[in-house]
Amino acid sequence: MTDFEKLSGIDRREAIKRVSVLLGGVAFVGGSSLMTACAGDRPPAADTTASATTAPAPIGEFTVADQQYLDEVADTILPTTPKSPGAKAAATGPFMALMVTDTYTPADQKIFRDGMTALETACKAAHGVGFMQATPEQRTALLTTLDAEQHAYQKTRKPDAPQHSFRMMKELAMLGFFTSEIGYTKAMRYKETPGKYEPCVPYVAGETSWASHA
């Protein structure tokens, strides 16, 4: 079972709230539906990671190739650094597919899937190759353009207007990574609890933030 499937219901609720702070305090796509899905009990989902004996499996309408595609998108948003592995190492692509399948409305699912198609079309138009064949520099340039587009869209978007597809991708990439074991222990500092209560801890500029606990 993957790291994100090991999270309990309350952990997932708190994770969504906390990662929303990283996005400027905005509500995640899926709104109350996503929060409700994270709170309720449901049968364990199929393992979405590969092993020596188990092959990756489709998730809803997302094929294994789709999940690999999302892994690369997420890894472009959150790449490997000298301090931490990137989003692909945290199996963020399968996480994104699972969350869209389990928590998004049919309308939002369509926007997300159409966004994947639009991303591929835009990459071919800009660079002459699909996203999976593009260089890291080409991928970064494309996603930077889409990120600026979704930021501009957010400023004029009405409450009842559909969400921007890249906003969805970026939200789920960040949520999947920063609630994974890698995100908690590599990108952030993690200390097993319970432990000694320390109300004030000195902060040194440049240190990674502490991983929160539910």
Rank of each mutant, 00 (worst) to 15 (best):
K17R: 15
P58I: 08
E171T: 03
T156Q: 05
H127T: 09
A52V: 12
L23C: 04
Q109E: 14
R18D: 10
P106M: 07
R113C: 01
W210K: 07
G25Y: 03
V204I: 13
V201T: 15
M35Q: 15
K83L: 12
F177L: 09
R139I: 12
D114Q: 15
Y203A: 12
G93P: 09
A205R: 08
R167L: 14
E72A: 12
A161R: 06
A122D: 15
L172N: 08
G60W: 02
E72W: 00
S209K: 12
K186I: 01
K88L: 04
S209T: 08
G206D: 02
A57G: 04
V204H: 12
T185H: 10
M99Y: 02
T145M: 13
S180F: 09
V129A: 06
G183N: 02
G176S: 09
D114A: 15
D3H: 11
K196I: 11
A52E: 14
I59W: 00
D11K: 01
T117A: 15
A50M: 13
M168R: 03
T103L: 05
T36W: 10
S180C: 09
M99A: 14
A74W: 00
P162Y: 08
F177C: 06
S180G: 07
Q150A: 01
A161S: 15
L98A: 14
L23N: 04
D160Q: 13
G130R: 04
Y69P: 10
H213M: 01
G30Y: 09
A52K: 14
D160K: 14
T54K: 14
F95M: 13
A148K: 13
T193N: 03
A148T: 08
F177D: 04
L23T: 03
T117K: 15
Q150R: 15
K191A: 11
E171P: 07
Y153K: 13
E192W: 03
T140M: 10
G31I: 07
T80W: 00
D147E: 13
R167M: 13
M96L: 11
A134V: 07
F95P: 00
E5N: 03
Y190V: 00
I16Y: 04
T54N: 11
Y190S: 04
A134N: 10
L7W: 04
G130N: 13
R42G: 11
A46Y: 00
R189G: 03
A141K: 15
V29H: 06
T48E: 05
K158H: 10
T101Y: 12
D66A: 10
A57N: 01
Q150E: 15
G195M: 02
E171C: 08
V204N: 03
H127A: 10
Q109H: 08
R18G: 02
A141E: 14
D102I: 06
R139V: 09
I16T: 10
P82D: 07
K191H: 08
A126L: 07
P136E: 06
L7S: 02
A97I: 04
C123D: 03
T81M: 01
A37T: 02
R12E: 01
P44D: 07
A148D: 11
T145Y: 05
F131E: 07
Q109D: 12
E171S: 09
